[in-house]
Design a protein around this nucleic acid. Sequence first.
DNA 1: AATATTTATCGTAATATTGCAATATAATAA
DNA 2: TTATTATATTGCAATATTACGATAAATATT
Lengths: 108, 108
Amino acid sequence: MGATKTEHFTGNQNAIAMLTKALGHPARIAIMEYLMSVDTCICGDIVNELPLAQPTVSQHLRELKNAGLIKGNIEGNTICYCVDEKSIEKLITYFTKITTKLKSKSCC
Amino acid sequence: MGATKTEHFTGNQNAIAMLTKALGHPARIAIMEYLMSVDTCICGDIVNELPLAQPTVSQHLRELKNAGLIKGNIEGNTICYCVDEKSIEKLITYFTKITTKLKSKSCC
DNA sequence: AATATTTATCGTAATATTGCAATATAATAA
DNA sequence: TTATTATATTGCAATATTACGATAAATATT
């Protein structure tokens, strides 16, 4: 044991969990915030913004990319990163649906 | 190493990461969905809804509770669980702020 | 009181994550 | 060509997570 039993859950449940899991680390939240703190793509420069070693940042970037939360374009010597809006929209839609249901509840 | 370096990040970054991390497992997403699938608190009955052993479900419930995503009231023999709306609101507010910023971007 | 029911905790094995030094890769600059 | 710069990959140690059997704790039922 030790591995998540994804096969017992729906595709949507696994998809949402994949997104939230990728966001479930302060460094990755910090990366997302940094990517959105300017009006353009960020080319290079991400490693210097974080209090972590370069291989660690690279690993976090890969996880965000695998989850579909960010996109990365090779631009010569550096890589330009930016947020993939679709994934964030998906999360907002999901959570909004949740709270819409909650409004009609009266409990606890 | 192996432990997250929370001390290097802001309180808000850690707070959001704590919520998303707690949601980062399909079983916990399934629990949240189940809790919201009815109009009242769910007293007992959560274990039977999931394809996991009782101690495992109990562990997932504790994680959701520690993160502040659900509330649990002891009701005699059973425990009544429901979603803590405030935590979900916090996430929606956060992600909405993110997309508002993204709208003004033109990149990638 | 004895038993059943519900949930939590303990202990532990399997697996995953986090972090970084060392090294590799690839493009640019000298 | 030989640095230099930017990012990725490898390997590994420390730690965390996932899952569950066994057991405990607490209330309910008989």
